[in-house]
Nucleic acid binder design. Structure first.
Lengths: 340, 340
DNA sequence: CATCAAAATACAATCGATTGTATTTGTAAA
DNA sequence: TTTACAAATACAATCGATTGTATTTTGATG
């Protein structure tokens, strides 16, 4: 059993040609049913299993798409992945899931490996460190179709599927304002990423609409990990005036802040109303439950995959004129952390 | 830029043989430095990128391991994956992550695909539905090394890296007993899986040690999803005597139960002490925080990968006598849900 | 029974890289 | 300059499957 059986083994056993075996296994009409039956039986008997390396090499097609996310453990990304897998499997594609862990060098390596393995296309949401695009431009020049979802870069000719981060930021902030907040802190992420710039822009727009002056010291930038949230909370409390609201660009940092506030005796939501972003499951369970912005992850995955597969199907020449940015709506989930 | 450049393109451009190009790119001592430099420069110029399909086919080695988990979104599994990736990358291996979503047919497909892609080995934690092992036996006969972690099956000759579920179940249950619980409910999973049988056995052992009679109606089997927990909670409340403790074989079901109890006005931990299993991040954040059993996921991933890579390195004949079951300790994390 | 088209199968090239063997080149010693 | 040996490079087979083309087989028809 050690050495894997090939179509040549089957061919030899039946004294026929390997090409006939190949066609039979692919159910080609060029092989008679009788022969197909014999081949299938023998293949079964020998425990034959197609070597996709050889097949894909010859066909110059892998029927595989690569997916790169910052972390698979984030609920939002794992929902996107579910949407991707569903759509891809239905279309006969396999999916390779990779996580950059928010590191640019890992993202570079992953892109390299996916290309070397000749995936037919790539869906990606860039890492927080991604401030150089060489690897992505390389992929573009290479002719491998790819598409951004959620976290994108400005690269000409590349489509993306996004949510309306501006609106999300606006909704979150206005919600706090309507709940009586006057001085609203904001946790943002790396400014290289459009999603964070846009959430911040939404925040500013809401302030502006309600004639609340923008104060730069209220906007804190970090990697939005849990302890970044705690530190941000500390910073906000150290300001010479009272901060009474917080819009965090993700749930994790919001929770870090919430824990810090709890520890310091700052009551949420009474003294500090909080809104997060992403609707991680944890945000519905923490006490008080966290108001947040829900993003349709599964749907993003579905749409992104559909677009990518279309692009893969198209002739290379036809690609230029189908760049498209799809923007999906997010929705505010009102919970206890913001109800004064 | 459309058609990818190959070593033949480089060879032609430099009027040398493709074999020399190949050797140069692999830094073989058989090629002079001068030629290597010329080749590298040209490769760069043409944007050459090795075709791993061809390379792996020829070498009959992919330097890739497949990982199959029930769900990537479970914290425990994503920690295991981190451990796997770290160890694998350090050894020059790539990792393909797949999720079975607890479905046997998906698990079968994944195994099939990984084998067809000729991964060098597989690490897997079986789905809850896995009560037939045909696909695994097939993989074994096929000669592909694999190894179970956490959720394993009884297949001769296959190693596993597990945690001590019996001890975990025992600790959880004894902890409840020592906190004064008299009638302890238990949520278990599919009995096909040893982890759940063992956790239940630990539960029974703890009862026995403390001379508490075992009551079969207190043991509820399900898929341990959140709503299974809620339904289990309902069942426990409907019993003719008062249940005052619950050991759930995972955190998710424990949380489902906790929410149900909260809704029904059953106070946790006063009227109902609860212990979960796995230490999902959510369990530290829910109110009251959930006592649970922590499993060293990252370490499991590291060890499992190390063992798998060893097995991959060995000659096939040497494999038989190195079957090994590694059992790691779990630890009780005491939180509020069990402090009476 | 001969003819011919259609059906079935065989032949051979190919995908891109690797690798054992053969040949050429270079260089130092005789 | 020749010889000899090592260094550098070329040749050719190979991995396993696919696919366009060529050949053989089949069976129907006159």
């Amino acid at each position: 059993m050690e050495n894997k059986t090939t179509i040549h083994d089957i061919a030899k056993a039946l004294k026929i040609d390997a090409s006939t075996v190949s066609r039979a296994l692919n159910n080609s009409p060029r092989v008679s049913q009788k022969t197909k039956d014999r081949i299938l039986a023998k293949a079964n008997e020998l425990g034959y299993q197609r070597n996709l390396l050889a097949s894909n090499l010859r066909k110059n097609k892998t029927n595989t798409i690569g997916v790169i996310v910052p972390r698979i453990s984030r609920h939002f990304f794992s929902s996107v992945i579910s949407g991707i897998e569903e759509t891809a499997y239905d279309a006969g594609y396999n999916v390779i899931i990779c996580q950059s862990l928010e590191q640019l060098d890992r993202e570079r390596n992953i892109v390299e490996t996916l290309l070397a393995n000749r995936v037919d296309g790539v869906l990606l949401s860039v890492s927080m460190e991604t401030d150089e695009y060489d690897h992505l431009l390389n992929m573009k020049n290479n002719g491998t179709p790819f598409l951004f979802f959620d976290r994108h870069c400005e690269i000409e000719g590349i489509s993306s599927v996004l949510i309306d981060d501006f609106q999300g930021g606006f909704d979150a902030t206005e919600h706090l304002i309507l709940n009586g907040c006057k001085n609203i802190g904001h946790f943002s992420g790396p400014q290289e990423l459009a999603i964070y710039r846009n959430r911040t822009a939404g925040y500013r727009k809401a302030l502006e609409k309600h004639k609340i002056p923008y104060r730069p010291e209220l906007v804190l930038r970090s990697s939005l990990m849990e302890n970044d949230g705690a530190e941000g909370a500390k910073t906000l409390l150290s300001l010479p005036y009272k901060v009474d609201g917080l819009f965090s660009a993700n749930d994790i940092a919001a929770i870090g802040a919430m824990k810090y506030f709890k520890n310091e005796g700052v009551k949420v939501p009474e003294n500090m109303a909080i809104v997060g972003f992403s609707n991680e499951p944890i945000s519905g369970v923490i006490d008080p439950s966290l108001t947040t912005i829900d993003q349709p992850g599964f749907q993003i995955g579905q749409i992104a995959t559909k677009l990518l597969l279309e692009e893969i199907g198209k002739a290379p020449s036809a690609k230029a004129n189908m760049v498209k940015t799809t923007i999906l709506k997010s929705s505010l989930i009102e919970r206890d952390s913001s109800r004064k």
